[in-house]
């Protein structure tokens, strides 16, 4: 039964009706980031205007966003790397030895409201003079990245056939050796999924950095928030900052689309 042209057209319209509202805020953000303040406050809102780069200039030159960019990257990458180091063996063990309780324990870390650890951290870190230190921020962000990595990788390792590591073990390798030499190399897609997602969540985190970071280690989400709260809402520059923050996560998503979808949906789909 081939659908008629009219049906196909109707379907296309329906799909557009789904996609456009999702996309629209991004388009508007992007457009506004190239508008002058005059164009932004214009009424009725302007669709056509002569674009300017002054907002981006202001964000990077005057507001020093590059520094916060680097901070976000340092913290995100360190948190993800350390979490991989700890999380991969744990995920493997959960998958191989069926440690259900352990996986639940780590899942709880994902479900708990962040603020219930944040307050004690705040007290402890300030006693240890670790406020505004990369150590404190990386440790806190690891509580975001580690559960994601363990959760995704445990599921992934379960899908890796036992035979490959068993055949390595028949050849005389220990299980830990087989894990490193045989299992990890085939776990690439799983690692890509978990790394991409956990990095994005660390990149987007606001609450932990808002409390634990100050001037030195401030990350991007805090920078944009502060920018709004005392830069007397310079909308164009704020939108440029928003574009700059979202761009890396969106680019990562575009490159690793397949993996991101899998990572985000598998927890629920798998029974």
């Amino acid at each position: 039964m081939r659908s008629s042209l009219a049906m196909r057209l109707l379907f296309a319209v329906v799909v557009l009706m789904i996609v456009l509202p999702i996309l629209f805020p991004f388009i508007w953000m992007l457009m506004s980031s190239f508008k002058t303040q005059v164009d932004i406050v214009a009424w009725p809102p302007r669709l056509f205007f002569s674009p300017t780069l002054q907002n981006y200039e202001r964000v990077f030159r005057e507001q020093n966003f590059l520094k916060y960019f680097i901070n976000s990257a340092i913290i995100g990458i360190s948190a993800v790397a350390l979490s991989l180091l700890m999380g991969l063996p744990a995920a493997f063990s959960i998958a191989r030895f069926g440690q259900k309780r352990l996986s639940v324990f780590i899942l709880v870390a994902r479900l708990m409201p962040g603020i219930s650890f944040l307050m004690p951290w705040y007290i402890i870190f300030s006693r240890l003079k670790l406020m505004d230190s990369y150590i404190a921020l990386v440790l806190s962000h690891m509580l975001i990245t580690l559960p994601i990595i363990v959760w995704i990788m445990a599921t992934y390792f379960e899908s890796v056939p036992l035979e490959i590591e068993e055949s390595a073990m028949v050849d005389g390798a220990t299980r830990q050796r087989a894990f490193l030499a045989v299992v990890l190399p085939v776990a690439g897609p799983g690692i890509v999924t978990s790394v991409t997602l956990s990095f994005i969540f660390s990149w987007n985190n606001f609450m932990f950095s808002q409390v634990l970071s100050m001037e030195r280690t401030r990350t991007l989400p805090i920078a944009i928030y502060n920018f709004v709260s005392y830069a007397e809402v310079d909308w164009g520059a704020v939108m440029a900052a928003a574009v700059a923050i979202m761009a890396p996560a969106i680019l990562l998503t575009m490159v690793f689309q397949k993996y991101v979808v899998k990572g985000l949906t598998m927890g629920a789909v798998k029974g």
């Binding site: 303040q37 406050v41 709004v228 709260s229 005392y230 830069a231 007397e232 809402v233 310079d234 909308w235």
Partner: peptide, 13 residues
């Protein structure tokens, strides 16, 4: 607060 009113004043509103 002032950070919302000032831009309105600056925009002539």
């Amino acid at each position: 607060s002032w950070e919302n009113i000032m831009p309105l004043f600056q925009a002539g509103k």
